[in-house]
Amino acid sequence: MPRRILQGTVVSDKNDKSITVLVERRFTHPLMKKTVRSSKRYHAHDENNACKPGETVRIRECQPKSKSKTWEVVLGEA
């Protein structure tokens, strides 16, 4: 099964080797026919503590690293 890759903005890097990424998606509401913005926060593993708040990063699914982290930062892309 392919791993999902999402793109979002880093909103927090306070924990060691962890970041919080805000991923925003747009879709058309089925009844109102209006474009709606929806966002969700994901906890991602950042091995080298390289990401800083405000940066745009790509994250991909991985096996669970901890209770809340099932995503990791894709290196070499941004």
Rank of each mutant, 00 (worst) to 15 (best):
P2D: 12
R3C: 02
R3D: 06
I5M: 05
L6M: 09
Q7V: 06
V10M: 09
V10R: 12
S12R: 13
S12I: 08
D13L: 01
K14Q: 15
N15V: 12
K17N: 13
S18W: 03
I19V: 12
T20C: 12
T20G: 07
V21I: 00
V21N: 00
L22T: 04
L22K: 14
V23I: 07
V23G: 04
R25P: 08
R26G: 08
F27N: 03
F27A: 06
F27I: 06
F27D: 04
T28R: 13
P30D: 05
P30H: 03
K34T: 04
T35P: 00
T35E: 01
R37W: 14
S38E: 11
S38H: 12
S39P: 00
S39E: 07
S39T: 05
K40L: 11
R41N: 06
Y42M: 00
A44P: 03
A44K: 01
A44C: 02
N48E: 05
K52N: 06
K52Y: 01
K52E: 00
P53K: 06
P53V: 00
P53E: 00
G54S: 12
V57E: 04
R58P: 01
R58K: 05
C62N: 04
C62I: 04
S66H: 12
S68L: 15
S68C: 13
K69Y: 13
K69F: 15
T70M: 10
W71I: 07
E72F: 12
V73C: 10
G76L: 10
G76P: 10
A78I: 14
